[in-house]
């Protein structure tokens, strides 16, 4: 009798244990993204123009350099930062100056960010500057979208495809 009670006790403990495991294995559910919202993800890897122009080395300078290192032109490797702007429905949502990557600032600017917007119709405009111009932008893109709830709109910048790509 006592044995049966003990086995029953064991069964209860073990079943309670696996019930706990089973529960936590998939619940409570986690609301990762709010209902009725959509997401814009903007990303690119793009090198800004090189800083300044090239300079011709003087004969004396060339003389001092090791023979295999002699190059007539001295071109700075640093790149300019890339400036990006995102407008949604005419409102500025984001503006960022993205520095060139790499230890010497000679790599491309790397960008990846997301923006949450309410589902529905939106006009989206993006601008990018990769030169040393004072005003305006080198690339612009805009489009109208009707975003469904939870929809993901990807904005990429691909100069080889002519600029901004929305999908």
């Amino acid at each position: 009798m006592r044995d049966i009670a003990k086995y029953a006790g064991q069964a209860i403990v073990l079943l309670a244990l696996v019930a706990g495991v089973g529960f936590l294995a998939s619940s409570p559910a986690y609301q990762h993204f709010p209902e009725g919202q959509a997401l814009i993800k903007m990303t690119f890897v793009h090198g800004g123009q090189h800083v300044g122009g090239c300079r011709r080395r003087t004969a004396a300078e060339l003389e001092e350099m090791a023979a295999n290192m002699r190059r007539l032109m001295d071109c700075p490797r640093d790149r300019l930062p890339v400036v990006i702007e995102l407008d949604v429905d005419g409102q500025r949502v984001h503006r960022e100056v993205i520095a060139a990557s790499g230890l010497h600032g000679d790599g491309p600017a790397v960008y990846y960010d997301s923006f949450q917007v309410a589902a529905g119709a939106h006009s989206i405009a993006v601008r990018l500057r990769d030169t040393d111009r004072e005003e305006g932008f080198d690339y612009e893109g805009s489009a109208e979208f009707v975003l469904e709830p939870s929809q993901l709109l990807v904005v990429q910048f691909r100069p080889e495809a002519g600029g901004f790509v929305f999908r």
């Binding site: 089973g22 986690y30 609301q31 709830p149």
Partner: peptide, 26 residues
């Protein structure tokens, strides 16, 4: 017993055009 009572299930198939809103985390 747990496996029979509460079989492990998948969510809907992945769809990169959408953000997964509610997930049943392990």
């Amino acid at each position: 017993v747990l496996s029979l009572v509460k079989p492990a299930l998948s969510h809907a198939p992945a769809d990169l055009g959408k953000v997964a809103g509610i997930v049943n985390l392990d």
